[in-house]
Design a protein around this nucleic acid. Structure first.
Length: 558
RNA sequence: UGGGGUGUGGCCAAGUGGUAAGGCAAAGGACUUUGGAUCCUUUAUCCCAGGUUCGAAUCCUGGCACCCCAGCCA
């Protein structure tokens, strides 16, 4: 099943596009872009932005660009452009041959700034950073005009050229737009366009010592690329008048339009790069690709599929309301995807030895069981059965509560794909009270798990044959934060879930799993979906997500 | 106390004057060689208060709540 990336749920941006096409705006063209800053790893929130931009382009016969917004040389690195490209490719968005960098436009941006100066729309300001802040005023008080605001055009041109030539140190002067210091919109109070930064850029080297600001670089980059619909998140709403101001004053004929939508927030995790960085640098997780991280590389290592991520992003909708989507929604998407695609396997996470007393010693037989009941055409696999087995500790109770359908003294259950077994005795550690071994009998008439006399059995357990089972490590991942919204109160780190990772090192898995490859995904019967950890030599499986567990839920309620 | 946004069930989200889609979660039931999957069933008058209208979540007026903005970050 391949995902149709162009089948986006209806949303308000598509409606704007519909209207634009009806009006023949942009000649009916639709051209979007994803503009990451290469200063970190992208996360599932970015994936949603990618889905919307790419999906809207596909759905409207349009084009989609990838453009790195690399206008701050002090924060950006080549390493990040590679990882971001890799993640976007993995997600399945295709920018074809349209990979761009804002830094490719530095010269054009410079020339546009010269135009603004010539139109008396920009000036070089010598105020210090602190002074600029003071002159800017406050939210409720208008700002004051810079004393340098009325320099002559000639002087501005000269100074700006010398800024570019490197005559002044970092921070000495800036180029500012000449707009309105009393605007109620802070962004319009003569914003900075270019600043001096005597620092090498990872792509342009030391060619430039002045760098454009986002507010200036973004609309121009969009315009240069012929972007029609420039989508961004809500916090840029106040920047839109400025976005438009630059395009108007530079006389672009078909200016792109900025449209804002709410960014994605998911419960029990954090999404800002700053916070993710703190998690990594503080050692709270094992790197950017820790399977608990909401980064794309983290989700990939965890075992998430691109299809499930797309599905989730699409279901969460495109709107303007700030929202916090339940992580259960994400988990639902991956369960649904993996239910039909993941082969079934048996793995005993917390083994309890079972001896089948009436089964011949030294005998091994091979039984058949389905690879995936959702896809019967895949056929069967064979699994070894013998006198000595392991089942899950949880599947036996010395003193079973009501509605417990599993093994208990005297009870009979089915071993999946094998036989009915009945517990006739058990051994217990006298000191700890721990059950150490079960003695059972099997009914040879129930081979395959069917009884001839039609007697029913309530429970079916997964199991593994002792001699052929392979040892493995299983890592159980849980929500990274205990709180639904970790940023709601105090420091988000205070709400970390101490049990977000539980390592089970004595697991026993069916032998076929030894042949699995890193990254392979399986359903471990009755336990959940797991993927072979790509970063480990040994047999290590990450739990992607548990199965829905109504028994556990019933227990919890009590 | 300035400006920009947003308010529909526990969480998302359609709806744009004609009598509240859908998904997730939750609950009940059926079925089941995964207590999985599947299948039924159940759950809101739309932030509040007025007003217009035969009729309003949708229009008007006035409130209230929450989010964003004072980087030479994006």
């Amino acid at each position: 099943m391949s995902k149709d990336y162009s089948a986006l749920k209806e949303n308000f941006i598509q409606k704007i596009i519909d209207q634009d096409r009806e009006d023949n705006k942009y000649g009916g063209r639709v051209h979007t872009r994803f503009p990451p800053e290469p200063n970190g790893y992208i996360h599932i929130g970015s994936a949603k932005a990618i889905l919307i931009n790419y999906g809207l382009a596909l759905a409207n016969d349009g084009k989609f660009n990838l453009r790195f917004d690399d206008t701050d040389p002090t924060k950006e690195e080549e390493e990040f452009v590679e990882s971001i490209k890799e993640d976007i490719k993995w997600l399945g968005a295709d920018w074809e041959n349209r990979l761009f960098f804002a830094s490719d436009y530095f010269e054009q941006m410079y020339q546009c700034a010269v135009q603004l100066i010539k139109k008396d729309k920009a000036f070089v300001c010598d105020l210090s950073q602190e002074e600029i802040r003071e002159y800017r005023g406050t939210l409720t008080r208008p700002g004051q005009e810079s004393p340098y605001r009325n320099r002559s055009i000639e002087e501005n041109l000269d100074l700006f050229a010398r800024m570019r030539a490197g005559e002044f140190p970092t921070g000495a002067r800036v180029l500012r737009a000449k707009i309105d210091m009393s605007s109620p919109n802070m962004n319009m109070r003569d914003p900075v366009i270019f600043r001096i930064q005597q620092a090498p850029h990872f792509r342009t080297g030391d060619k430039w010592v002045i760098y454009p600001m986002y507010d200036y670089a973004h609309p121009l980059s969009d315009a240069f690329e012929g972007i029609t619909h420039s989508l961004c998140s809500l916090e840029f709403e106040d920047n839109r008048p400025l976005y438009n101001w630059f395009l108007e004053n530079l006389d672009f004929s078909e200016p792109p339009q900025q449209i804002e939508f709410a960014r994605l927030n998911i419960s029990h995790t954090v999404m800002s790069k700053r916070k993710l960085r703190r998690l990594v640098e503080g050692g709270y997780v094992d790197g950017w690709d820790d399977p608990r991280m909401p980064t794309i590389c983290g989700l990939r290592r965890r075992g998430y599929t691109p299809e499930a991520i797309w599905d989730f992003c699409d279901r969460s909708g495109v709107a303007k309301t700030n929202s916090l989507i339940s992580i259960a929604q994400l988990e639902h998407c991956i369960r649904q995807d993996l239910n039909w695609r993941a082969p079934r396997m048996m793995a005993v996470l917390k083994p309890l030895k079972v001896i089948i007393e009436n089964y011949p010693e030294g005998k091994t037989e091979y039984l058949e069981t389905e690879i995936n009941p959702e896809q019967p055409e895949l056929g069967h696999r064979s699994i070894p059965f013998s006198r000595e087995l392991y089942i899950e500790q949880d599947d036996f109770r010395e003193d079973p509560p009501k509605k417990f359908f599993r093994l208990a003294p005297g009870r009979e259950i089915r071993l999946k794909g094998a036989y009915y077994i009945q517990c006739v005795d058990y051994k217990k550690d006298p000191n700890t009270g721990e059950i150490t071994e079960l003695r059972c009998t099997y009914d040879p008439e129930t081979r395959g798990g069917w009884s001839r006399d039609g007697r029913k059995v309530k429970g079916t357990a997964h199991w593994v044959s002792a001699a052929q089972a392979r040892p493995a490590e299983v890592r159980i991942y849980n929500h990274l934060f205990e709180r639904e919204n970790p940023e709601e109160e105090g420091d988000f780190l205070d709400h970390l879930n101490p049990n977000s990772l539980e390592i089970l090192s004595d697991c026993l898995v069916e032998p076929a799993l030894a042949e699995s490859k890193p990254g392979d995904r399986f359903q471990f019967l009755r336990k959940g979906y797991f993927n072979r950890d790509p970063g480990s030599e040994k047999l290590v499986f990450n739990r992607i997500v548990s199965l829905r567990d109504t028994w556990a839920r019933m227990q919890k309620k009590k």
